[in-house]
């Protein structure tokens, strides 16, 4: 069965064990989570967890049903129509061409956010596919370290 990329949002009660319960549904089936973000939903006792994973339709359907069954889970959305965003932080040696890097960042909704004696750090924020592209494009500037935030998503 073909594997597809899926984005799932889970609204959960913000309590200690909930993340392990959710992660366990994936790990127990031998499925990897590509990215996972968690943050509290403002002015509520809930958190939103956004999970990006790969799987066949059947497997994802079963995982979604199992997610629904977890006691602290309020809602599960498997996104069809959504806005996705991801952020990345990249560290470059200052010996690289600063203006080229700054221009490239700007094309991906980003900028230089910190410069020290040896390194500078820039960020970009864009749809995951474009973040991929950006990271390919900056290879020639010898990035020292890359941190991606994982995907956040919202239904349209």
């Amino acid at each position: 069965m073909p594997e597809e990329r899926r984005v799932i949002s889970v609204i959960v009660i913000n309590e200690a064990s909930v993340l392990s319960r959710i992660a366990g549904l994936f790990s127990g089936r031998g499925y990897n989570i590509d990215s996972l973000t968690v943050a509290p939903i403002p002015e509520s006792k809930y958190s939103r967890i956004t999970i990006v994973t790969q799987g066949s339709v059947l497997v994802i359907e079963q995982i979604i049903k199992q997610l629904h069954k977890l006691i602290p889970v309020l809602k599960v959305y498997e996104h069809a129509n959504l806005v996705e965003k991801e952020m990345a932080l990249v560290k470059f040696p200052v010996t690289e061409c600063l203006s080229d890097i700054a221009a490239l960042c700007a094309a991906y909704n980003g900028k230089i956010v910190n410069v020290s004696e040896d390194f500078m750090i820039c960020n970009v924020a864009d749809i995951p596919q474009r973040v991929d592209n950006f990271l390919k494009a900056i290879k020639r500037f010898h990035p020292k370290e890359i941190v991606r935030s994982g995907v956040v998503a919202m239904e349209i």
């Binding site: 200690a16 064990s17 392990s20 319960r21 366990g24 127990g28 006691i71």
Partner: peptide, 14 residues
């Protein structure tokens, strides 16, 4: 214990 019982209970509490 709750780490171990998680996949073999309907729910658990510490």
């Amino acid at each position: 214990a709750v780490g171990i019982s998680r996949p073999c209970t309907k729910h658990n509490y510490l």
